[in-house]
Design a protein around this nucleic acid. Structure first.
Length: 423
DNA sequence: CACCGTCAAGTCGCA
DNA sequence: TGCGACTTGACGGTG
């Protein structure tokens, strides 16, 4: 059983992706962007390896305009060595990767141009996975598409167009229920014709259920049968509704207890769960810890070291509660621990808490920083207190000092997540 | 420097 | 018939 996240990280340096507009796209620019994105992917893989995350979705933005005539680069040749290096790393560490062409890749459109572009896009995605030389258990996830006033015909068109695809693409494709048009029953029906494995998405199912009384766990079990030996373990998507946004919007974070119960209800080891959530890797680590068999408080202490100063900034009350919670070294209070973290993270930072946390972080440099650096920090912090600047420049300075003086305890801190986002 | 609209992709739903 | 929502970083323009 693996738990993973999609496309991007939070709070991890050198893992961002770049893109460009069609207008600015040229060979040199595209080359640089691809090179940058492949390096970022490398750093993401390193992070995943170091944090025991074995499931990851590679962003479709890896190669900009890859399925468009605007990109004339033979990127699979130009970066062949890098792809092989990345693929070796993936295989060596037993990571399962996937890709997920977005909502604009529509294989069942009545418009032949749209279908042509969809096929080009599937070829692109498959080419990335082929370039990594990873097996057929590393999947391409696809939705069915539109309805165009005639669902039956639209489903048939999907099946017909699917059959024209290259065998290597067919072998990788897996089909997912969506939140509007094709429910899990529809997808199962189509998949039985295309011989494709099916991804069950729990939130899509909640929003777009089928006229069938079976609960989500029965459907998960049903979907298992569509996964054959060479497809690898069954995969599913798990997400929770953001209560403040429109129906279908992913939550900011996964609730540890809700996930724990869901996972225990599935009660199987041979399933991989892709989380779709705003805080990405943070929730992946959270969910891994929530269901971990190794119930050691050391894992929570490691998490605490990363969240600590952000929690201190947002909520001194939760900060104190967590400190108290972690004093009992024989316990593994994973659910209350993350409940306090979530509670703190929901809060907006106030000036008092922000100053307090910044001063705590500054404490790491009290001994080593020069007088000039000290002056700079104090002046930035008072500018912030006086409302002249935002908190970001203060954190940027602390981040720079963290790197300069290699303060290991701070290097992995989520306190700097918003700074890292701007680099 | 901060903020906002636009861009790319395709479909659906609502004026 | 046409526009907003969905997604996300780049980019150009305004204050």
């Amino acid at each position: 059983m693996s738990i993973g996240y999609a496309c991007q990280t939070i709070g991890i340096p050198n893992t961002s992706s770049k893109n460009c507009t069609l207008k600015n796209a040229n060979e040199e620019k595209l080359y640089q962007i691809i090179s940058y994105n492949l390096d970022s992917l490398d750093h993401i893989l390193n992070y995943n390896i170091n944090n025991g995350i074995k499931l990851f979705r590679i962003s479709s933005d890896l190669i900009p305009f890859a399925s468009s005539p605007a990109n004339t680069l033979e990127w699979w040749n130009l970066f062949q060595a890098k792809f092989i290096e990345l693929g070796d790393k993936i295989k060596k560490h037993n990571i399962r990767v996937s890709m997920h062409p977005g909502q604009y890749t529509v294989l069942n459109s009545p418009n032949t141009d749209v279908v042509y572009r969809a096929i080009k896009d599937l070829e692109y995605h498959n080419r990335v996975l082929d370039s990594l030389k990873v097996g057929k258990n590393h999947k391409l996830v696809l939705h069915i598409g539109g309805i165009y006033n005639d669902k039956e015909q639209a489903m048939l068109r999907f099946i017909t167009n699917f059959k024209t695809l290259d065998q290597r693409i067919k072998d990788r494709l897996v089909l997912e229920n969506d939140d509007k048009l094709y429910n899990i029953k529809d997808v199962m029906e189509i998949a039985s014709q295309t011989n494709s494995p099916v991804i069950f998405d729990n939130l899509h199912h909640k929003i777009n259920p089928c006229n069938d009384l079976r609960d989500e766990f029965s459907w998960i079990q049903e979907c298992k049968c569509t996964w054959e030996q060479e497809d690898g373990n069954q995969k599913m998507h798990y997400s929770e509704q953001n209560p403040l946004k429109r129906l279908g919007s992913h939550s900011n974070t996964i609730n540890a207890e809700v996930f724990f119960n869901f996972y225990n209800n599935i009660n199987r080891e041979d399933i991989d769960i892709m989380l779709e959530v705003k805080d990405k890797n943070l929730s992946a680590v959270k969910c891994i810890n929530a269901v971990s068999k190794e119930k050691s408080i050391k894992n929570l202490e490691l998490e605490w070291s990363k969240y600590k100063y952000l929690v201190l900034e947002k909520s001194h009350e939760d900060y104190n509660s967590i400190r108290k919670l972690l004093k009992e070294k024989d316990n593994y209070p994973v659910i209350p621990f993350y409940n306090y973290i979530d509670h703190a993270m929901e809060k907006e930072s106030a000036v008092g808490g922000s100053v307090n946390a910044a001063q705590h972080v500054w404490g790491y440099f009290k001994e080593c920083a020069t007088e000039k650096e000290k002056k700079l920090f104090e002046s930035k912090l008072s500018s912030y207190t006086e409302g002249k600047i935002s908190l970001l420049p203060v954190k940027k300075l602390l981040w720079q000092l963290t790197n300069q003086y290699q303060q290991n305890y701070l290097l992995d801190s989520y306190y700097f997540a918003d700074v890292i986002e701007t680099i």
